[in-house]
Amino acid sequence: MSVDLNQFLQTFFEESFEGLETMESGLLALDSQQPDPDTLHNVFRAAHSIKGGAGTFGLTAISDFTHRMETLLDRLRDGEQAVTAETVNALLAGVDCLRGMLEAIQAGREVDAEALQSAQARLDAQLGQGGQGGQGG
């Protein structure tokens, strides 16, 4: 018996767009002086869900990109890295990039490689990995 994954893929897209809204509103509400742990956790959980769903459907570009965001969010949650305007802006750019990637895949279009590379570079800079494991641009 064959299972039609398209119905589940549509649910993944719907839940991912909801998750992106959760991430965006949470990031916009963050206070860099006293970041709310619950808000950070909610943003992290939304990213984690998107990453997991993307992995399930073989959407490697989305799961890999979201993993970067998740790593940065985990550092913020654990207090290993300060919440700064630059960090929040890099994460918001990541949310925009993810939204664009999801919309492109859902519509059967190519992902905007330039936007993806730019958003990855911003996240990598925040992760302190700007010159490691990749080419500069």
Rank of each mutant, 00 (worst) to 15 (best):
M1T: 15
M1D: 14
M1G: 15
S2N: 14
V3R: 14
D4M: 08
L5D: 14
F8Y: 15
L9E: 13
Q10H: 13
Q10I: 09
Q10R: 15
F12Q: 00
E15S: 11
S16A: 12
S16W: 11
F17S: 02
G19P: 00
L20P: 02
L20S: 05
E21H: 10
E21R: 13
T22Y: 05
T22W: 01
M23K: 09
S25K: 13
G26P: 00
L27V: 10
L27H: 04
L27N: 01
L28H: 08
L28N: 12
S32M: 11
Q33I: 02
P35S: 12
P35A: 13
D36Y: 10
P37H: 15
P37C: 13
V43S: 08
V43N: 06
F44A: 03
F44R: 05
R45C: 01
A46T: 08
A46R: 02
A47C: 09
A47H: 11
S49P: 03
S49N: 05
I50Y: 07
K51I: 06
K51S: 07
G52D: 02
T56G: 05
T56R: 07
T56K: 03
F57R: 00
G58V: 11
L59P: 01
T60G: 02
T60W: 01
T60M: 00
A61W: 01
I62E: 03
S63H: 02
D64K: 10
F65Y: 06
T66F: 11
T66K: 10
R68Q: 14
R68L: 14
M69K: 01
T71W: 05
T71R: 08
L76H: 07
L76T: 02
L76M: 13
R77H: 03
G79C: 10
G79D: 09
A82C: 02
A82R: 06
V83M: 06
A85Q: 10
A85M: 06
E86L: 14
T87S: 14
V88W: 09
A90P: 05
L91Q: 00
G94Y: 03
V95Y: 08
C97D: 06
R99Y: 11
G100K: 01
L102Y: 06
E103A: 08
E103W: 06
A104S: 07
A104F: 13
A104R: 02
A104C: 04
Q106Y: 05
Q106M: 10
Q106T: 03
Q106A: 09
A107I: 04
A107R: 12
G108Q: 04
R109C: 05
V111C: 09
D112K: 04
D112H: 04
A113M: 04
E114P: 01
A115V: 03
A115P: 00
L116T: 06
Q117T: 13
S118V: 06
S118A: 14
A119G: 05
A119M: 02
Q120E: 15
Q120V: 09
Q120A: 14
A121C: 08
L123K: 06
D124S: 09
D124Q: 12
G130I: 12
G131E: 15
Q132Y: 15
Q132D: 10
G134D: 11
Q135V: 15
Q135G: 14
G136S: 13
G137F: 14
